[in-house]
Nucleic acid binder design. Sequence first.
RNA 1: GCGCUUGUGGUGAAAGGGAUAUCACAGGAGCCUUCUAAGCUCUUAUUCCAGGUUCGAAUCCUGGCAGGCGUACCA
Length: 585
Amino acid sequence: MQEIIGNKLKELYPDVSENLIQLQKTKSDFEGDVTLVVFPLVRISKKSAEETATAIGEFLTNELSFVEGFNVVKGFLNLEISTSYWLSQFHKILNTPNYGVREKSNKTYIVEYSSPNTNKPLHLGHLRNIFLGFSVANILEANGHDVVKTQIINDRGIHICKSMLAWQLFGEGETPESTGLKGDKLVGKYYVAFDKKYKEEIKELVTQGMEKEQAEKHAPILIQAQEMLKKWEEGDKEVVQLWEMMNSWVYAGFDVTYNTMGVDFDSLYYESDTYILGKDIVESGLSKGLLYQKEDGSVWCDLSEEKMDDKLLLRGDGTSVYMTQDVGTAVKRFNDFPATVGMIYTVGNEQEHHFKVLFTILKKLGYPFAEECFHLSYGMVNLPTGKMKSREGTVVDADDLMAEVINDAKEITEERGQIENLNDQQRSQLFQQIGLGGLKYYLLKVDPKKSMMFNPEESIDLNGNTGPFIQYTYARTQSIIHKERGVLAKFNPDTEAEKSEIDIVKHLLELPEMIKEAGKTYSPALVANYTYELVKLYNSFYQSVSIFKEENKDKQNLRLLLTEKVAETVHFTMSLLGIEVPSKM
RNA sequence: GCGCUUGUGGUGAAAGGGAUAUCACAGGAGCCUUCUAAGCUCUUAUUCCAGGUUCGAAUCCUGGCAGGCGUACCA
């Protein structure tokens, strides 16, 4: 429509350019469907806004059959568009296969999310991260791109050795099997055990008269952990074996969590692999003179031009830091997937500086893909009690939280759901869909940039702008669709239509643009808001007209088709958020 | 100190420079003999402050104020 009106306007004012034509939805307080903002055009028309608007309104009403009338309010030209126009647009939608999905672009995007440490279980913060990354991957796919979902697994380093050591010291041979604990939980338990012992030792040293700072460096258990790390780097057989065993526990535990979450990955990168490549790259960068070395042998990247502090890439003793490994990972990924035009790092905003530095270093090392890296930064999830700290045990565990929301869903559904005809397996699937749907929607509907407060006591809402509300509406559509068998005839675009029906059509027409925008801005929140808006319109429609009591077949048909299309769209957009929709609830 | 970022009804959020700022929750008033009331309809209440750019600013710029994050030979 933008195009048609734009072209028409050029007949009236040959000088107008595309960007002067601002069409938008008419606000609900005014008559009309589409509004042209005429202020930008007054320079060309050389008349007042009101006069210009009236002139254009008259012109368009005469020239375009679908413009039925117009009104002018303070320089805004509200155009009234015919019902038949909207219905013909709806007809087009019905005939578009995979409406909303864009054509193949032959471009590859890599989306990284989760990227856990292998020394503790996943927590609430990971949930926001993973749901966000997973959803962005889906959105990019809907935009026609090939997507590689990946993560970097931080499986080595001093923090990993800490839980290994604690297990060795206090574990008495415990295994997930012997304890019945999930592998990641068991390992996490020893990470906490390490910290407890460590703090005790510090306290003891301080009472013996040592400065706190010194004590923190000289606690025997820390020294032991550092020795273990060294042994690991040297390939000590026993340590590596222990490392492999405990990591395998953690992975088995993570798999269970990912499975419940309904997310997956296409490729995995391990820090234990990529840090070596990182070191090689840094050394070659040094020999090319792109990096510099200090007297103690440490290697740095000069960032003074960028007004940042220089960044260490290799320690004096030749060991690597986090950044070294990240350089290696990035290079490896672009080698593995040469068609990549974008790499999205889903990582919390606490690491914004880190990624700024990373991308700068990659650029300085001469990798053109540095331009294609993007840090999808999101705000922290806070608790009413303050910040989550894993060592202090103030985290909300991912598994626990999911179990809790699923249980909430169970209670509420048993109370008011329509589940008489479902068997046990179908019921538990439904509870999971609702509980997780609520949780995912809750975490995704907010702009990722904003930090958020999460109250586990109150858990998640079920009314209003929530996942279950959308799921509920979907279930309604399904119940209608199940009854409609045989009723549906061919669509007749010449029928009459209610306002609530046209409103749905208008919103459906916005789907492709929304998908595009969400892909461009990596924004699941946009998808969530769109879907919410759609089901609200549908519920309003649902309440105001009857489908099966309608005697006019064409009208009834339109309502059924709208129901089907809304259902299909909700299914699609919710799937972009990683949320399932039930046919009954 | 410096850098990034956020400030919108009581609470949580929305608004690609456009009209009288939109939703939800909570509060108030209604709607089930009718396709699922986890729903619908109505109602009360909001742009941190001060300047500036613009025909037009929640949005852009400058300066404050307040919160968050960062500024490691940690990850």
